[in-house]
Design a protein around this nucleic acid. Structure first.
Length: 476
RNA sequence: UCCUCGAUAGCUCAGUCGGUAGAGCAAGUGACUGUUAAUCACUGGGUCGUAGGUUCAAGUCCUACUCGAGGAGCCA
């Protein structure tokens, strides 16, 4: 990682991370750029300025001697948030707390803070609720720096995993005309003039005059579309934005979030569960390896125990349990649940957490759910009562992945579409996939922000995405 | 959407029985110091979320609304 050359002769622009990593020889001339975290003045004729440039969790100490031309009128005006470029010598620090520091020969102040008293990001612990109200400034905090770098590493690990396993990333459409699987309320996409809507003779809004010549929405899932690519490229996945217009106001829901949906051909539910296990372990392992400083920050300041939770996850093989057996286990557990477990009803969060935290003590895959509580595309089992669906439950959070083997038999699929009163005309192209060379296939879905919440130990999903969109709030 | 709790200085909070407002941090000034979220002293900073109501008197009690948090439902 050679420092890039800059205009100034003999001087290289380097990151805070590079300065602290030990890869640059002490005595080197360097240029660093960043934002001030704190400034401490010494009457010995120097100031200490801690700067961050986002390259790592740590800050770099700039030692600014009072001999600098702009010491009195600029350096001593530096407050949290101000931006600067420092040029000088990278030296071993005389003080404790850091191995290296930069002895500045010049400090160029790019931007002071207009009103330091009202600058929201102060060198102290802020509440996450408050920081949500300043979403444009919160990336300057330790917490959001860590989450942002971890988010990047996790996203990279997702692509790395699938690439190594021979998958193709397929960009399914964000604008869609079908309501997919009825997976929830959709955002409408329209260019019609809301003040003056075209009407049909029957008085309905005339969608044929809209941009796409029909109704259109933002996607709630790329799964149906990606199945088509699966039945040609064998191993595919989506990773993109997803939208749900549900009025859910919780720490686990966003109106706009990123979803990962792999789909594998010539595969059954067991293959699907195997894939989910390898996938989660790879992402967790990568993040632990690539962002130890940020994970340590999460451990200290976000939630104690997050690192150990991930390490344990890597070591544990997933337990697999049939839904019916899980219900029996819950009923015989002697544990009092707010909702009594009953065959035919979906597992509550309290049930899921009991299964993986108390009953098994490691991640659990619950398989073969009652068909009446699951989507039309899930493959019907021979017992006539269940479908080949699975949920991966993780200690500390509950469901983290939901997936299924898909119904590849046209007659069975048609029967389900009819049974559930879905409009068959919407699924013609989906039915084609079963008419032209159908094969068993399976896949799962995973909310990327929920994965981050688990990795970082965050309490609220709104802190796992840069600009959270939730009912009643789309500021910034 | 339902239930519960909350909103007081830039931030985090205290504010007793209803009697016109307080701390820590931050900011400003000074002292001190190769300092480490430095330390010490002083100073400035408030339409108590909004609108009504009760009262001689409301941060405090009542009503409505707005916003936030926790839980539930829905789900990823």
């Amino acid at each position: 990682m050679a420092p890039s050359r800059r205009d100034s002769p003999g001087m290289s622009a380097v990151s805070v991370k590079q300065c602290l990593a030990g890869g640059i020889a002490a005595g080197s001339e360097v240029e660093v750029r960043g934002w001030v975290r704190t400034r401490r003045d010494s009457k010995a004729g120097l100031s200490f300025v801690q700067i961050s440039d986002g390259s790592c969790q740590a800050t770099l100490q700039i030692v600014a001697p009072s001999e600098l031309d702009n010491y009195e009128n600029e350096v001593k005006q530096l407050t949290a948030g101000a931006s600067l470029i420092a040029r000088g010598t990278l030296v071993e620090s005389r003080g404790k707390g850091q191995a290296f520091e930069v002895k500045a020969a010049a400090i160029e102040v790019l931007g002071l803070v207009d009103d330091p008293e009202t600058y929201p990001i102060q060198p102290k612990q802020h509440s996450l609720e408050f920081l949500r109200e300043v979403a444009h400034l919160r990336p300057r905090t330790n917490t959001f720096g860590a989450v942002t770098r971890i988010r990047h590493s996790a996203a990279f690990a997702v692509h790395e995993f699938f690439t190594k396993e021979g998958f193709c990333w397929v960009n399914t459409p964000i604008i869609t005309s079908s309501d997919a699987e009825g997976a929830g309320q959709m955002f409408r996409v329209s260019t019609l003039d809301l003040e003056n809507l075209p009407r049909t003779d029957a008085g309905k809004v005339d969608a044929s005059q809209d941009f796409f010549g029909r109704e259109a929405f933002l996607t709630v899932s790329g799964q149906l579309n990606v199945e088509a690519y699966c039945l040609a490229l064998s191993k595919v996945y989506t990773f993109g934005p997803t939208f749900r217009a549900e009025n859910s106001n919780t720490a686990r829901h966003l109106a706009e979030f990123w979803m990962i949906e792999p789909e594998i051909a010539f595969a059954d539910l067991n293959d699907d569960a195997d894939l989910a296990e390898r996938f989660l372990k790879h992402v967790f392992k990568s993040v632990l390896e690539q962002r130890p400083d940020d994970m340590e920050f999460c451990e200290q300041r976000v939630q104690k125990g997050v690192i150990e939770r991930l390490e344990k996850f890597l070591d544990a093989s997933f337990e697999r349990i049939d839904y019916g057996d899980a219900i029996e286990v819950l009923q015989k557990s002697g544990k009092k649940f707010e909702y009594a477990p009953d065959w035919g009803v979906d597992l509550q969060t309290e049930h899921e957490r009991f299964l993986c935290e108390e009953h098994v003590g490691r991640p659990v895959v619950v398989m073969n759910y009652p068909r009446d509580i699951k989507a039309f595309y899930m493959r019907q089992n021979d017992d006539g009562k269940t479908v080949a669906a699975m949920d991966v439950l993780a200690p500390g959070i509950g469901e983290i992945i939901g997936g299924s083997q898909r119904e590849e038999r046209l007659d069975r699929l048609d029967a389900r579409i009819a049974e559930m009163n879905l409009d068959a005309s919407h699924y013609e192209w989906y039915r084609d996939l079963r008419r032209y060379g159908t094969v068993p296939h399976a896949g799962f879905g995973l909310g990327f922000e929920r994965l981050l919440v688990y990795i970082c130990g965050l309490a609220n999903i709104r802190d796992a995405i840069p600009y959270p969109r939730v009912p009643g709030a789309a500021e910034y």
